[in-house]
C-alpha cells in the first residue's frame, strides 16, 4: 500500500510538470496584451513598453518560463495585477469558500444518491427505481448555471425562502474568527449560532445546485453496480448461507459495488471543481472559481496560472485519495500498478 502511494506520487510529479508547461504556454497564446490592458486606453506607446519591460513580458518566452519556474520553486505564484496581492495569498484566502461549497455539495449528493441507487437496484421497476431514473436524467440534462438560476428564481424571488444570492454571509453578519476558513465550522467553534444559521442559509441553494449536478452520476453508478453485484455468484452464496438481508446487502453486495462508485466519485469531484466556477458566479460566491474568471477576463496571467495549478494539484491529490480508498476496499487493487 505504501509502495503504491509512493509510485503514484512519482507519477504525479510528471503530471504536474506537464501542467506547469501547459498553463504557461496557454496563457501566453491567449489574445489580449496585458501591458496595454493595464496601462489603460490613454497610455502612450512608451508607457506601455515601459510597463511591458517592468513586467518582464519583453523577454524571450524561454527566459520568461525559466523565471516562472524559479518563482514557483520559491512558492511564488506571482502577483495579481487586478488585486495587487500575491496570487498565493489570494488563492489561500478564497480556497475555504470554494472547498466548503464543493465538499458540502458532494456530501449532500452522496447522502441522497447512494441510498437512492441501492433502493432502486434492490427493487428494479419499482416507484423508487423510476424516481431514481427521473432524478438522474434531470441531473445530467440540467447545466449547473441553469439549476442555480432556477433555484434562485423559485426560492428567493418567488417564495422568498432563501436569502439573496450574494456571497457567503449576509452583510449584517460578520465573519467568524478564522480557524479552518469554513464558516459553518468556525462559527460553531465560536459558539456564534446566529452566524452559523446565516452561513447555512446562504449555503443551501448553491450546495443544492452542486448536489443535483453531482448526484445523477453517483446514483446511476450505484444502481448499476448494485444490480450487477446482486446477481453475482457470491451474493447467491451469501443468500444460500442464510445470511440476513442486511448482511447480504451491505457486507456482501454494497462493499463490492463501492469499487465503481468510488471511481465515479473521483470523476464527479473533478466535474464539481469545474462546475464550481459557474456556481460561484451565479451566487456571487467569493471562491477561487470566480477569482479565476475575473482574472481571465482582465488578461491577468498570474492568477489564472495559479488557479489552474491549484486545480491540478487538487486533482492529483484527489486521484491519489481515490486509489487509496480503492486499495482499502479491494485487496486486489493494493498490488495492482
Amino acid at each position: 500500500m505504501g509502495a503504491m502511494i509512493l509510485r503514484r506520487l512519482a507519477v504525479a510529479v510528471f503530471s504536474l510538470i506537464g501542467v506547469v508547461v501547459i498553463t504557461f504556454a496557454l496563457t501566453r497564446v491567449l489574445p489580449g496584451d496585458t501591458a496595454a490592458y493595464f496601462a489603460g486606453p490613454a497610455a502612450s506607446r512608451e508607457a506601455i513598453e515601459q510597463l511591458r519591460h517592468s513586467l518582464g513580458l519583453d523577454k524571450p518566452a524561454a527566459e520568461q518560463f525559466a523565471d516562472y519556474v524559479a518563482a514557483l520553486a520559491r512558492g511564488d505564484l506571482g502577483n495579481s495585477l487586478t488585486t495587487g496581492q500575491p496570487v498565493l495569498s489570494d488563492l489561500l484566502s478564497r480556497l475555504p469558500a470554494s472547498a466548503e461549497l464543493t465538499l458540502l455539495g458532494l456530501l449532500v449528493s452522496l447522502a441522497i444518491a447512494i441510498p437512492f441507487g441501492i433502493l432502486a437496484a434492490v427493487k428494479p421497476g419499482s416507484f423508487v427505481d423510476h424516481a431514481c431514473r427521473l432524478v438522474t436524467t434531470a441531473g445530467v440534462s440540467l447545466p449547473v448555471f441553469f439549476t442555480g438560476l432556477l433555484l434562485v428564481y423559485v426560492f428567493y424571488f418567488i417564495l422568498g425562502w432563501a436569502p439573496a444570492p450574494l456571497g457567503r454571509l449576509d452583510v449584517f453578519l460578520s465573519a467568524p474568527p478564522t480557524v479552518t476558513g469554513f464558516f459553518l465550522i468556525d462559527s460553531a467553534l465560536a459558539g456564534d449560532w446566529e452566524t452559523f444559521r446565516g452561513a447555512l442559509s446562504q449555503l443551501v441553494l448553491p450546495v443544492l445546485t452542486l448536489a443535483i449536478f453531482a448526484l445523477a452520476p453517483i446514483a446511476r453508478m450505484t444502481r448499476a453496480a448494485m444490480l450487477a453485484v446482486l446477481t453475482s455468484d457470491f451474493v447467491r452464496t451469501a443468500r444460500a448461507s442464510g445470511l440476513t438481508p442486511w448482511s447480504v446487502l451491505i457486507t456482501y453486495a454494497f462493499r463490492n459495488a463501492l469499487l465503481p462508485v468510488v471511481t465515479t466519485l473521483g470523476m464527479v469531484f473533478s466535474f464539481l471543481l469545474g462546475a464550481n466556477v459557474l456556481v460561484e458566479k451565479v451566487f456571487a460566491w467569493p471562491g477561487i472559481g470566480s477569482y479565476a474568471i475575473e482574472a481571465l477576463i482582465a488578461s491577468d496571467f498570474a492568477p489564472v496560472q495559479g488557479f489552474v495549478l491549484a486545480m491540478a494539484v487538487m486533482y492529483v491529490l484527489l486521484n491519489l485519495l481515490i486509489d487509496v480508498l480503492q486499495g482499502l476496499i479491494d485487496p486486489r487493487a493494493r498490488t495492482a500498478t
Binding site: S232, D233, F234, R236, T237, A238, R239, A240, S241, G242, L243, T251, Y252, R255, N256, I329, D330, P331, R332
Partner: peptide
C-alpha cells in the same frame, strides 16, 4: 434453515466467494 440445516455448494468456486472478504 439455509446455511444451518441445508447448505449448498456451487460450481465455479472462485466466483462463488466474496472477492474482497
Amino acid at each position: 434453515i439455509r446455511g444451518r440445516d441445508i447448505s449448498m455448494i456451487f460450481q465455479n468456486p472462485r466466483t462463488a466467494l466474496n472477492p474482497i472478504r
